[in-house]
């Protein structure tokens, strides 16, 4: 029984950190720009396909260092795309009605899906994880896949990096100031437009990086962009829109509830995520971490 529970916890944490990796850039951008980017999953998928394409062109398998390095490269590439998307799309969305934001970013998702289908086809692809991540730790009857440890470590690393950036670096402090009061930040001579662009670049970069890290976690197909974002939406809603820490905690909470729910009622896998989401919204409609942005 105890071992079952430990296994479920490992499972939950893996799910949670994968979800947080998707949610981190999304909630950061929402906190600062108040744009909910429906295309976020699309750019994450793009990052995953980049790693897939690199792996294929190098003969199918990457070393661990290579896998990490190309995940970072995917992040950087998608970050540059973020700058383009900012200039072409997001700058026109500042201060407009949410309905337009939804339509515009959904259209962007469709565009990315189209591009992916055009380049890599509509079928599925597999990225094999680097050799060292295949296998597992065995503690008696408990099995902890190396890949789970890798995903959990990546999630925690992204949390710490973002927290350090926002609270201890000077550009990060400006990002926070702009999130809280862009008008006053302007009066303190902060170029708010520039901060918005930096935030978008970081948000997109996180999507590309997450795409790379998670590429070997599941099969790749052009629907991945839309699917991967549902759970992330849950985490950022429960965590408090715009809160990075909140999304992290919410992902863990939702992961635990979903995993234990599925253990107890195996006939309805995945349904407990939605039950937990609905329950949380009834109890704390503003999320775990109030409405305070990027904290």
């Amino acid at each position: 029984m105890v071992f079952d529970i430990l296994a479920v916890v490992v499972n939950a944490l893996t799910w949670a950190m994968a979800t947080f990796l998707v949610a981190a850039g999304l909630t950061l951008m929402f906190g600062v720009l108040h744009i909910l980017n429906f295309a976020h999953g699309g750019f994450l998928m793009l990052g995953a396909y980049v790693v897939f394409a690199v792996a294929r062109s190098l003969g199918g398998e990457l070393s661990f260092a290579g896998y990490l390095a190309f995940s970072v490269v995917a992040g950087l590439g998608v970050a540059v795309l973020g700058l383009v998307v900012d200039i072409v799309v997001f700058r026109r969305l500042r201060g407009v009605d949410n309905a337009y934001v939804l339509i515009a970013t959904y259209a962007l998702l469709l565009l990315v899906e189209g591009v992916v289908k055009h380049i890599w086809g509509a079928g599925s692809h597999l990225v094999s994880p680097p050799e060292v991540l295949i296998g597992a730790f065995f503690f008696g009857p408990i099995v902890i896949p190396y890949y789970s440890v890798f995903v959990i470590a990546a999630g925690v690393a992204v949390l710490f990096a973002l927290e350090w950036f926002l609270h201890h670096s000077s550009p990060g402090k400006l990002v926070q100031a702009v999130a809280i009061d862009p008008w006053m930040a302007t009066l303190l001579s902060v170029n708010v437009e520039r901060i918005y662009s930096i935030t978008i670049v970081i948000g997109f970069g996180l999507a590309g990086l997450a795409g790379g890290i998670l590429a070997a976690n599941q099969g790749l197909n052009p629907q991945l962009g839309g699917i991967s974002i549902i759970q992330a939406f849950g985490a950022i809603i429960v965590g408090g829109m715009g809160s990075v820490r909140g999304a992290f905690l919410a992902a863990i909470l939702l992961g635990l509830v979903d995993s234990f729910g599925t253990m107890l009622v195996p006939d309805f896998p995945g349904i407990f995520f939605y039950v937990a989401l609905a329950a949380m919204l009834l109890v704390r409609p503003k999320g775990l971490i109030g409405a305070e942005v990027t904290r």
């Binding site: 402090k173 100031a177 009061d181 302007t186 009066l187 303190l188 170029n191």
Partner: peptide, 28 residues
């Protein structure tokens, strides 16, 4: 001239609603 540049030209506006950043210290 954009507002953020005017703010860097020696014009310092203290708004009526104060607009202190609540999440950081007085020093910050």
């Amino acid at each position: 001239t954009p507002a953020y540049l005017r703010a860097g030209m020696g014009l310092s506006l203290v708004p009526e609603d104060r607009r202190i950043f609540p999440h950081v210290t007085v020093a910050e």
